[in-house]
């Protein structure tokens, strides 16, 4: 007989893996994405071409493939095996999401009319002042909906890490199906819904905060 508390404990342990992966990925890929954006918008042509090709490859191949490549690549190619599966998962996720974020940032920045920069310039502002005082908030407002979508996708994508052996929540629940229990599987669904419900509310608030102006 499987006790309810053991099921819950097992699901919570799995969830912790998802949450760790989620927060670390978000924290690292958001700034890394900005670096990639700088590359893909650079005036230096080779750098721009290189960055855009990189983004194209990352976005054009499955995250699942990237997970395997990061886990096995270093060992099989360079004789330096990945010591931790979790680290491998983090690296793959961060690179993958940074590539997506960078494109969202780029779209946001490019959507700001040239006149906004020029108005700042003729008023004697520096490039840095123009970016931080004029452009940035407009970009944030424009990209919040698409960033929100990506973040919600990320919560669900974290479960993909099971393919390289991260004991995430669905894997935990799956162990119970082998013992004839479907309940835990449904429960994981509820976990995700709760998480994304909270995220949706948070994003809604953020959007509302920027409602006072229109871009």
């Amino acid at each position: 007989m499987i006790s309810l508390s053991s099921i819950i404990a097992s699901l919570n342990a799995g969830l912790l893996e998802n949450l760790k992966l989620f927060f670390i990925t978000l924290l690292l890929s958001a700034p890394l994405g900005l670096v990639i954006t700088l590359g893909s918008m650079s005036k230096i042509k080779p750098l721009r071409a290189l960055t855009r090709t990189f983004v194209w490859i990352i976005r054009g191949t499955p995250l699942m493939l990237q997970l395997f490549v990061v886990l096995y690549g270093p060992g099989l190619l360079f004789g330096m095996p990945m010591k931790s599966r979790f680290t491998a998962a983090v690296i793959a996720f961060v690179i993958n999401y940074a590539a997506y974020f960078s494109e969202i940032y780029r779209g946001g920045i490019e959507s700001i009319p040239k006149g906004q920069y020029e108005a700042g310039q003729v008023l004697g502002m520096t490039k840095v002042q123009i970016f931080f005082k004029v452009i940035l908030l407009q970009v944030i407002k424009r990209i919040t909906p698409s960033m929100g979508n990506e973040v919600i996708t990320l919560t669900k994508d974290t479960s993909l890490a099971r393919v390289i052996g991260i004991p995430e929540i669905i894997m935990s629940a799956d162990r119970f199906t082998k013992k004839g229990l479907i309940g835990p599987l449904f429960a994981t669904g509820l976990y995700f819904l709760a998480m994304n419900g909270a995220l949706t509310i948070l994003l809604g608030r953020l959007e509302k905060k920027m409602d006072y102006f229109k871009v």
Binding site: G115, E118, A119, G120, G124, L137, V215
Partner: peptide, 30 residues
């Protein structure tokens, strides 16, 4: 360029600032 001021055909006001803030922003930064 501060010898010159420019009024654009398309206004190019900063949307996230009030009328007053649009007017004062650059002076504050200077």
């Amino acid at each position: 360029r501060l010898h010159f001021g420019m009024v654009f055909q398309q206004f190019n006001l900063f949307p996230q600032y009030t009328a007053l803030q649009n007017v004062t922003l650059a002076q504050e930064l200077l």
